[in-house]
Design a protein around this nucleic acid. Structure first.
Length: 120
DNA sequence: AGCTTGACTTTGA
DNA sequence: GTCAAAGCCAAGC
């Protein structure tokens, strides 16, 4: 098991921001890597967000299962402890998942910028 | 120092 | 609508 202690300080800090937003995701809601990345101002590095989710395993309260790709597909399910956990947790929160895809994804989509910006 | 890989996104055909 | 390729940033070998 590799620790992310080898990553740069800047990257660690980046992870923390991703975790912070991921923790803000309400139950029954989901978001995409790109949206989180954009909320952080690094929309181009959506991969880095996914990478950060890998680091989320060393955290405990990171609802990484609420984070999917832009298609609403559970691309990262294979990276979970038991891969099936991701879908199970989503369904437990009231989210329907069919063929590793979230049903009504656009309706369940949660935009982090909406919370951070507070433009209401 | 250079090439490959990765929980992604966007654009072109 | 789907498929292929490029862009992107950092880590691993």
């Amino acid at each position: 098991m590799k620790n992310f202690d080898t990553v740069s300080e800047q990257t660690k800090d980046f992870f923390q921001r991703v975790f912070e937003i991921t923790r803000l995701i309400p139950e029954g809601r989901v978001t995409s890597y790109g949206s989180i990345a954009k909320a952080l101002g690094t929309a181009k590095s959506s991969r880095m967000v996914g990478w950060a989710m890998n680091a989320s395993h060393r955290e405990k309260d990171i609802p990484a299962h609420r984070v999917v790709n832009r298609n609403g597909v559970l691309t990262g399910k294979a990276h979970f402890n038991p891969p099936e956990i991701m879908q199970e947790r989503l369904e437990k929160e009231g989210i329907k998942v069919v063929d590793d895809k979230i049903v009504d994804f656009e309706k369940l989509f949660w935009d982090p910028q909406q919370e951070l910006g507070g433009s209401d």
